[in-house]
Every structure is written in structure tokens, then in C-alpha cells.
């Protein structure tokens, strides 16, 4: 990667960065009692939680650092954090 004019960076390139490797705990989206409130997606500091269907959410394991905010904030306890086997 050539240095351009003192270090310009191209937009949206952080996606190349695999922050999922930081994880100790991984969320499990049970997809049982989900009401589709979207809180999990809103509060994720990585912005890597997303809906596949209206009441079915999942996350991108490439970026999830396993902070557990989605699980802590889920009002219906439909997300569990489990120790990740690596």
C-alpha cells in the first residue's frame, strides 16, 4: 500500500480488520423470543448485529469482539454469551 500525501486513508477500509479475533465470549442469538425491537443491533459498538428477518437477528463474527452488550440489553433474554472455543 503506497503512502499517499502523508497518509490519506481510503474510506470504509476498516472492514478489512478482523476484530473478531479479540473475542473470548461469543453471542448466541437464540431466535426464540425475539420481538424485533432492534436494540441489539442499535447498541452494538461494532455495528455488526443485523436482522436476517423481522424477528431474527444475527451478527458478523468477523467483527464481534464479544462485549456482550447485545445480550445485556436484550429485553427478552434471547441472546446468550458463551465462552468461545478456539
Amino acid at each position: 500500500m503506497k503512502v499517499i500525501l502523508g497518509g490519506l486513508a481510503q474510506p470504509a477500509t476498516s472492514l478489512a480488520n478482523n476484530t473478531g479475533t479479540w473475542r473470548n465470549y461469543i453471542p448466541v442469538f437464540l431466535q426464540k423470543t425475539c420481538t424485533g425491537c432492534t436494540i441489539c443491533a442499535i447498541v452494538c459498538p461494532e455495528g455488526c448485529v443485523y436482522s436476517v428477518e423481522k424477528k431474527k437477528f444475527t451478527f458478523d463474527a468477523k467483527y464481534c469482539k464479544g462485549c456482550g452488550m447485545c445480550a445485556a440489553e436484550c429485553p427478552v433474554d434471547d441472546i446468550e454469551m458463551v465462552m468461545e472455543e478456539k
Binding site: 470504509a12 476498516s14 472492514l15 480488520n17 476484530t19 459498538p45 461494532e46 443485523y50 468477523k62
Partner: peptide, 24 residues
């Protein structure tokens, strides 16, 4: 993933409130 203007792959700590704030 949802389309955001502040994207994943940033290197904030676990559970960073500021990363969330900036994205919002």
C-alpha cells in the same frame, strides 16, 4: 450487515461507548 457510515473493524475496546456514540 446494516449499512453504517462508521464501520466495523475499528479497534475500540470491548463495549466502547464512544464507538457507539460516533456511529449513532
Amino acid at each position: 450487515m446494516e449499512k453504517h457510515l462508521f464501520l466495523a473493524g475499528h479497534t475500540a475496546c470491548y463495549g466502547c461507548g464512544e464507538a457507539l456514540g460516533a456511529r449513532l
